[in-house]
Write a protein that binds this DNA or RNA. Structure first.
Lengths: 260, 260
DNA sequence: AAGTGGTCTAGACCACCTG
DNA sequence: AGGTGGTCTAGACCACTTA
């Protein structure tokens, strides 16, 4: 190609390294675009499952080249915030249409074939946050929270006993009835009914002995070894919005993990 | 920029969809480059920790543009086969220089500060592969394998009891002495001494009760709940090259995992 | 046929590291 | 100063989907 005069430095581009600054301070254009898109996602401009504007459209809107918005979208797709579908568009990720299994549940039956599990709600109540729960959810001890307990069953037998804590202010009106009537993944309901989207989670896994109540819930002898899975889930901006403690009976299931 | 005549279709490029074929069959150029690089990595053309040729160099060698090489390297870096370092080059990933911790060990002390752990070899012997081990390592039952058992200690107290199985043909000459004298991560030794590089691994996690021998090893009462972590590690080409079963005392440690 | 994501190029320039 | 990875552009063309 023939030589061209230097590309005129893009207005928003550059953002040259701010010299007299304590921190790194340098944000490439595509990172800024990514930030803009993230904010629009967070604001709910596009609902889960919906398509966002095309790359060309976004490029002209932000006055950058397609390649630059592409790179921004690439990263958001890698973080599972967006899903690309060739020929169709780019869509806001959702927990609602996970055909196979719950996206965050790593439990697999020993034979490796993922079957779907039945849910049984044990109870669901509003109460004041105990100190450790408040600490995890980054709210004040004593604030209103929702506590929910439930079972997951495989082939009619209980395998997981979950205790779930949610901040009360985000889940106003969440009751046992609404939980019972909703079909599909619970995180799908959180998106659709409460506008709370789980982006990522951290889990702490331990082996523990079944106490009296969990043993009864899981129809196991007291003292049986159980997998304790403590999960803290985050929405946009790394805000913690769910604390969950699951007790897994791993006699016929295992927790699958990939390392790389 | 002025319009140019259509870019002449790149020789290796295109690889048009083979119509009368049963499988998808279409490989973009950068995927082919990625394949070539992977084969060279596998062949040991560049040793772990060494730099590979620069992007420009590779581009001219493969007769493609820098961007195409770049995309190939991007994927290899995402798979942790390569490590990019701005201004310096792109390097073959290695387990040897993990300053923080073992790359595959997800165990964390409760306070969250990763301290490094001491190793204590229990025994190491050559023997014939039991059926389940042979199945996992994809060799014949009865083939020579190396079995190794060891402890990891935190603050002088045993926390992990590992039983490790390696295919005998790949690890000729691995003895207790050589293990004992080697400093640094074991996977680093596997790279340097045996040319076997662990790329990724799958883990199956369960809760179990300590039996007599594991209880003794970990200085715990028989029946204590333990985390059982069964790991199958793979080299290039998804060849399984290590089977490992770890029993973790999770009283003061937990297995950390991230979901997204 | 039109629209969307996906690939590829050639070239310019920037940020970072090392002589 | 020179090399390496990192960003950005403009434009062409390909693959996939839908109408």
């Amino acid at each position: 190609m023939p030589a061209m005069p230097p590309v005129l430095p893009h207005p928003a581009a550059a953002v040259p390294t701010e010299p007299a600054d304590g921190t790194p301070a340098f944000s490439p254009l595509y990172q800024q675009i990514k930030g803009l898109l993230t904010r629009e996602l967070q604001a709910g401009v596009w609902k889960p499952g919906e398509a966002i504007p095309s790359e060309l459209e976004l490029a002209s809107r932000f006055k950058v080249s397609q390649g630059t918005v592409r790179k921004a979208i690439d990263e958001l797709a890698a973080e599972n915030l967006l899903v690309r579908r060739q020929g169709k568009g780019t869509f806001v990720a959702t927990h609602a249409e996970q055909q196979v299994q719950y996206r965050f549940l790593r439990l697999m039956p020993d034979d490796g074939v993922p079957r779907d599990m039945a849910r049984r709600l044990v109870d669901c109540q509003r109460l004041r946050a105990p100190a450790p729960v408040a600490r995890a959810l980054d709210c004040r001890s004593g604030d209103a929270v929702i506590q929910m307990r439930r079972l997951l069953l495989a082939g009619g037998r209980p395998v997981v006993f979950d205790e779930i804590w949610l901040p009360g202010n985000l889940f106003k009106g969440l009751t046992a009835e609404r939980l019972a009537e909703y079909k599909g993944p619970m995180y799908g309901m959180f998106e659709a009914e409460f506008g709370v989207r789980m982006i990522r989670a951290e889990e702490k896994i331990r082996a523990v002995s079944a106490d009296a109540s969990s043993a009864q819930m899981l129809s196991l002898p007291v003292g049986s070894p159980l997998l304790s899975v403590e999960r803290l889930s985050f929405t946009y901006g790394d805000r913690p919005v769910e604390l969950r403690r699951g007790l897994y009976n791993t006699e016929q299931h295992f927790y699958r993990n990939e390392l790389n």
